[in-house]
C-alpha cells in the first residue's frame, strides 16, 4: 500500500468555528469582567483635623433688592367720543363739555399724582429695608469677627501654653554634655503627628556645639509623645513647631 493517502480529518470547519466561538466568549467575558472591576466604588478615608470653614454669613442675601412689584397699569385716559349735540344750543353745550373735560383731566392728573406718590413711598420703604438688612449683616459680621478674635486670642494662649509644655518635656530629657557654653542656642524644626509622635526633627540653627545639638535631638525623640491640646482642631498650629533650646533653661 504505497499510495496510502492519509484521509483528511473530518470536521475541520466546525472545529474552526467552535474555536472562534470559544475565543469570542472568552473575550467578551474578559472585557466585561475587567470593566466591572474598574467601576467599583472608590472608598476614601478622610481624617478631619480642623473644622471646615464656616458657612458665609447670610448678610448679602438680605441686601439684595427685592424684585420691584409689578407696576400698576396706568389707566389710560381716553378722550371720550364727542357727544352729538343739536346745533341750536351748541355753544352752551360746548361750554359744558369743555368744563366736563377739564374736570376729567384734573381728576386723571390727581389720580396719576397719587399713584406716583404711592410708588415713591414703596421705593423708599424698600430702600429702608435694604439698609436695615445690610446694617444687621454688618452687625453680625462685626460680632462674628469679635468672637473670632477672642477665640483666636484664647487659642494662641493655649498654643503658647502647650508649646511651653512641649519644650519643658523635651528639656527634661536633655542630657547636658560637659562644657556647653551657657549662651549656646539650638533651633529645631519639629514636625509632629496628631498622636504627639515626632515625625521629624531638623536642626535649623546649630548651637555650634555638636554634642549639645545631638543631645537636644535625642531628647526630642525621647520625649515623645509630646503633649498636645485635646482639641484636634488646634493641631494645625502644632504640625510644624519651631523650638529653641538653651542649656541654661
Amino acid at each position: 500500500m504505497a499510495a496510502y493517502a492519509a484521509p483528511r480529518e473530518p470536521g475541520r470547519v466546525p472545529a474552526a468555528v467552535l474555536a472562534g466561538v470559544v475565543h469570542i466568549l472568552f473575550f467578551i467575558f474578559l472585557t466585561f469582567s475587567v470593566s466591572w472591576k474598574t467601576r467599583a466604588p472608590e472608598t476614601m478615608v478622610v481624617d478631619l483635623w480642623s473644622a471646615p470653614p464656616s458657612a458665609p454669613v447670610a448678610a448679602p442675601a438680605a441686601t439684595e433688592p427685592r424684585p420691584a412689584p409689578a407696576r400698576p397699569v396706568e389707566p389710560e385716559v381716553k378722550p371720550q367720543p364727542r357727544p352729538e349735540t343739536p346745533k341750536a344750543d351748541i355753544e352752551l353745550k360746548e361750554k359744558e363739555r369743555l368744563k366736563k373735560e377739564e374736570q376729567k383731566r384734573q381728576e386723571a392728573e390727581k389720580r396719576r399724582l397719587d399713584e406716583k406718590k404711592a410708588q415713591e413711598a414703596l421705593r423708599q420703604q424698600q430702600l429702608r429695608e435694604a439698609q436695615e438688612a445690610s446694617r444687621i449683616a454688618q452687625e453680625q459680621e462685626r460680632v462674628a469677627r469679635e468672637m473670632q478674635a477672642r477665640r483666636a486670642a484664647e487659642q494662641s494662649r493655649v498654643v503658647e501654653d502647650y508649646k511651653a509644655r512641649i519644650k519643658a518635656k523635651i528639656q527634661r530629657f536633655i542630657v547636658l554634655p560637659p562644657d556647653v557654653p551657657p549662651a549656646a542656642q539650638a533651633e529645631f524644626d519639629v514636625v509632629l503627628l496628631p498622636s504627639g509622635d515626632v515625625l521629624g526633627a531638623r536642626i535649623k540653627r546649630s548651637s555650634n556645639h555638636k554634642a549639645y545639638d545631638d543631645a537636644v535631638e535625642r531628647a526630642i525623640y525621647k520625649a515623645q509623645p509630646l503633649p498636645l491640646p485635646p482639641d484636634p482642631a488646634m493641631f494645625r498650629d502644632f504640625r510644624e513647631l519651631n523650638l529653641r533650646f538653651r542649656p541654661a533653661e
Binding site: 480529518e9 473530518p10 466546525p14 474555536a19 472562534g20
Partner: peptide, 21 residues
C-alpha cells in the same frame, strides 16, 4: 498567543471529533 490559542482550540475540537468518530 492568540494565534496559538486559536490553533490549539481548533485542534482540540478536531481531535475531539475524530477520536469520537
Amino acid at each position: 498567543l492568540l494565534v496559538l490559542s486559536f490553533l490549539s482550540w481548533w485542534y482540540i475540537f478536531l481531535k475531539m471529533f475524530s477520536i469520537k468518530r
